[in-house]
């Protein structure tokens, strides 16, 4: 799958100041192709996360289009776009994200709780366990999120995004809570995912990520440029 963004930009209106418009992402063109690992770097507030969210179908651009294999995803109604995201796009959000009433294994299989039967969810357990092993969190499947460290929660989020083998994987600061060893492990996993014909788009401050990237991009003041 190829994601092409044409002229996407995002403006935010600052709360209480209707006239004070903040342009987080200036009109940007970008294409994300299968089998490649893209690393987007840049200073905080440069618009990286906003761009990622727009590309992932999570944030409607103020203008411009995001096309997935030629289809404008924001022209889809919410039901269709949500289903499309579930089946084709994996997102590793910033920070520690988990549903606290579910255990680790259920958190990883969350998309099967939204779409699919109990049977389908249980069928996904072996793949989920394999991902957990790969990411160094094996044996935590029955733990509740409150019992996990920040680094473990990050890896749960990574496993959740990768479970359905998405066509495109977006990762926002996937290594921010991890030690060097686990950072390398995660970056290597993302690299391997890209090599298995998935498009991987990583937003990070992690300098080491450059070494794994096929294409390195830099963002500054809402505009993107190649490094």
């Amino acid at each position: 799958m190829t994601i092409t963004a044409t002229g996407v930009c995002k403006d935010f209106i600052r709360q209480g100041k209707n006239t004070n418009k903040l342009t987080a992402v200036s009109p940007t063109d970008i294409t994300i192709e299968a089998g490649k690992l893209y690393v987007l770097m840049g200073r905080s507030g440069s618009g990286k996360t906003t761009l990622l969210n727009m590309l992932a179908g999570l944030l409607t651009p103020s203008s411009g289009k995001v096309l997935c294999d030629g289809e404008d995803i924001y022209a889809l109604d919410d039901e269709k776009l949500s289903r499309f995201r579930c089946e084709h796009i994996g997102v590793i959000p910033q920070g520690q994200t988990a549903v606290h009433s579910l255990n680790v294994l259920e958190n990883i299989c969350l998309s099967y709780m939204l779409y699919g039967s109990l049977k389908e969810r249980e069928a996904a357990y072996p793949a989920a366990r394999e991902l957990m092993r790969k990411l160094g969190i094996a044996g935590l499947e029955n733990e509740m999120p409150s019992a996990l460290s920040g680094g473990e929660l990050r890896r749960v989020a990574i496993a959740r995004a990768m479970l359905r083998k998405p066509d495109v994987l977006f990762a926002d600061e996937p290594t921010c809570d991890l030690d060097d060893e686990n950072t390398a492990l995660v970056l290597q996993t993302l690299k391997e995912t890209a090599q298995s014909s998935t498009a991987v788009f990583v937003v990070t401050h992690e300098r080491d990520a450059v070494g794994y990237a096929d294409i390195c991009l830099n963002m500054s003041g809402g505009s993107i440029g190649k490094q």
Binding site: A56, L58, S82, R83, C86, T97, V99, L110, L114, A161
Partner: peptide
């Protein structure tokens, strides 16, 4: 709110 955002990321529609 954040849990709902996670559900949205995982593919939940607004009506869901």
């Amino acid at each position: 709110k954040k849990e709902f955002a996670v559900l949205r990321v995982a593919g939940a529609s607004r009506s869901r």
